[in-house]
């Protein structure tokens, strides 16, 4: 899929996301919208995966360490055919496969159950190490949030990724600058990012996480880094709530509820 195709697909997935969350119900719209373009480029371009065979050994893996944005992954997985799209309507209902945070045993394509911040990245590292042991061709992508960087375990994992030369690991930092309560800089300042990741031994690539040309270029560079012995981090500058004007760059939609009017706008006329 080319950049224009990905853009259209991302717009559709944002509509699916809003429809899945629904009006009047809290949902992690903001942090899902910020990663949606990159997520689209992963599932419809960069990642080798087989929806009909989720445990294909040679697949690339994707783990949302920021598990609350796993709802974005749900719509992409359903769209790819991992499970029926009708199931999206059951989000967070009793007995649903679609838990508030992803459960690997309920959803094909979810590689790991996440939700407790700072954990998924460590798991991704272990997975990458195991795949190296087995000589598997796949890579591990993991999405971490900028608020999540306050978790000390993130930096334990970053050191481990470097120590074990996990060049089959690609960390994607969803740098939307807003955490649950307020801006990162006004809450707990986890900056600076390029300097920190470079100091921890990562190959650092910065990009605008909403420009598909830049996303595809960053993926090409990340792919080329395999064999270097260094893990890669994509520092993706994004906007919380991207594509939903009422939710743009505000902590209110970290886990907010859409009014009926906002919902109508979200499912009808989402800007890519």
């Amino acid at each position: 899929m080319n950049a224009e195709g990905l853009k259209q697909k991302a717009a559709q997935l944002r509509r699916d996301l809003a429809r899945m969350i629904g009006p009047g119900v809290p949902g992690h719209l903001g942090g899902s919208a910020s990663i949606m373009d990159i997520l689209t480029a992963l599932y419809y371009g960069e990642m080798n995966h087989r929806p009909e065979d989720p445990s294909w050994p040679d697949r690339d893996r994707l783990i949302f360490s920021k598990g609350h944005a796993g709802v974005a992954q749900y719509v992409a997985l359903a769209d790819c055919g991992y499970f029926p799209k009708e199931d999206l309507a059951t989000l967070k209902q009793l007995g649903s496969r679609l838990q508030g945070h992803p459960d690997m045993h309920r959803v094909p394509g979810i590689e790991m159950s996440t939700g407790s911040l700072g954990q998924g990245f460590s798991v991704a590292c272990g997975m990458a190490a195991g795949m190296k042991l087995d000589g598997l061709p796949g890579r591990v992508f993991t999405v971490v949030g900028d608020g999540e960087l306050a978790e000390g375990q993130i930096w334990e994992a970053a050191m481990a990724a470097s120590n074990f030369h996990l060049d089959n690991l690609v960390v994607i930092l969803d740098n939307n600058e807003i955490q649950a309560t307020d801006r990162i800089s006004a809450t707990f300042d986890t900056h600076p990012y390029p300097e920190k990741w470079a100091a921890f031994g990562f190959h650092v690539i910065e990009l605008n996480g909403h420009e598909f040309d830049e996303i595809l270029d960053a993926f090409t560079k990340a792919r080329a880094n395999r064999g270097s012995g260094k893990p890669t981090v994509l520092i993706a500058h994004t906007h919380k709530g991207q594509g939903f004007p009422f939710a743009l760059d505000t902590a209110a939609f970290h886990n907010g509820s859409m009014t009926p009017e906002q919902y109508a706008a979200a499912v009808g006329e989402v800007q890519a």
Binding site: V123, C125, G126, M127, A128, G130
Partner: peptide, 8 residues
């Protein structure tokens, strides 16, 4: 957590 990843 790394061990969990290896187990996967």
């Amino acid at each position: 957590a790394f061990a969990a990843g290896l187990s996967l």
